[in-house]
Amino acid sequence: MVKSGTIILNTAARFLMPLQLMFSVFLLLRGHDEPGGGFIAGLVAAGAFTLYLFAFGVSATREVLRMLDPRDLIGAGLLLGMISIVPAWFMDQPFLTAQWWTIPVIDFKASTPLIFDVGVYLAVLGSVIGMVMALMEVDKDEP
């Protein structure tokens, strides 16, 4: 169960993962207006990593993730969620009031709900791949 070792799955995973990740970011960003959003996007990204895990195993996936431990992703997600609370405080508005800013040149609407959504994305992603990787490592370590 460590890795599949079949050419078809390996090749597919190698190409599909970046596509899926890009798609998840797309879902994340458009989520406020069209179907999508942090939770769904997080699940799609987790799916991408899970596919890669099945194809190449845990240690290869860890290399792809570089320094990022899934647990750190969870923490970062929660932290972003908490950070999105802060601006409303400085504006002297009730707790969690959404703040909107438009970035002029690229005409991009930044907001605290977006930061919050990114937080949801990271927390979901970290939780799911954390659990999957932990499960797969149990297999790896036992004869």
């Binding site: 989520g31 069209e34 999508g36 969620g81 969690l96 959404a98 909107w100 709900p113 949801v120």
Partner: peptide, 24 residues
């Protein structure tokens, strides 16, 4: 809330505190 996807607006704006709790 400047969003047309109501489900998402509920999640991240109207009911953001609930979502935050669920994240934890």
């Amino acid at each position: 809330a400047y969003g047309r996807n109501i489900v998402n607006v509920i999640l991240v704006d109207y009911r953001a505190l609930d979502t935050l709790g669920e994240m934890f």
